[in-house]
Amino acid sequence: MFDALPLRRAEHAIVELRQYTLHPGRRDELIELFEREFLEGQEAAAMEVIGQFRDLDHPDRFVWLRGFSDMSTRREALADFYGGPTWKANRDAANATMIDSDNVLLLRPAYPGSGFRVEGKPRPPGATASSDGLVVANLHYFDAPVSPWFLAHFHNMRRPPLAAMGATLLASFVTDYSENTFPALPVREGEHVFVWFAHFADEQAYARYWQLMEALSTNGGSKPPQVPHRVESLRLKPTTRSRLGISW
């Protein structure tokens, strides 16, 4: 169906996609606190903050990603961080900005080699970094687990148009059905999702991509073997200390 790549050592077996709804006008406050206090502290606890973003369509939404090598490591890492001094010193300030922090999807790479690869990419120091372009997350919701035939369709039919638009496919994931090993932080259950991330030069390039996909569909392009009942698109702008999406 497609050529599977060997799992790379730096590829995270487990990734959380976290979408926080914040009190109006307080997103920049949380981002400043998050990037000052929480990045290095989390990574010292055996997890990696892959990227953090402003949602361009929802001014009070903060989106971020973090990865783990496995679920056992996730349990230990989260216990270390949320039981440690950095979170305890700053949790009240962080929680005061939030309305909801439970919109969390637990994901795994859709196939070997399809995860994020940020190894060797240093974290930007802050305000001097430039967040070039647009990172897009597309979430396809299904009524059943994502089939290998859908993954093959995506690999064969969606990747070439992305390349034609000068876009970069960053990663693709499906739901991980493991038991939540750290129940103090809820995750969404009962979901069957396929999520892909791409980087576009700008919003116009992203719009041209969807025009091309609509044209291919109208002209009798290949239909997917499994059809989602809903597709959610997130247009994301990397923050200045995001490892993903900066200085492409």
Rank of each mutant, 00 (worst) to 15 (best):
M1E: 11
M1G: 15
M1K: 14
L5D: 12
R9Y: 12
H12P: 08
V15L: 12
R27L: 15
E32I: 05
L39Y: 09
E40P: 00
E40N: 11
H58W: 01
R61W: 03
R61D: 11
V63H: 00
F68G: 03
S69N: 12
T73A: 13
R75G: 06
F81L: 05
Y82G: 04
W87S: 06
N90T: 13
D92P: 04
N95G: 08
N95Y: 13
M98D: 02
D100A: 11
D102G: 13
V104W: 07
P112N: 11
K121P: 01
P124A: 11
A127D: 12
D132Y: 02
A137F: 05
N138E: 15
N138A: 15
H140S: 14
P145L: 07
P148Y: 08
W149T: 14
F150S: 01
F150Q: 01
F154H: 07
N156L: 11
M165K: 04
L170A: 05
S172G: 02
V174Q: 03
T175F: 02
D176C: 10
D176Q: 03
Y177N: 04
S178G: 15
R188W: 01
E191L: 04
F194K: 02
Q204G: 10
A205T: 11
Y206N: 13
A207R: 15
W210R: 14
M213L: 15
M213V: 07
N219S: 13
S222I: 10
S222K: 09
Q226Y: 06
P228L: 01
V231I: 15
R235Q: 15
P238S: 14
R241A: 01
S242P: 04
R243W: 00
L244Y: 04
I246Q: 03
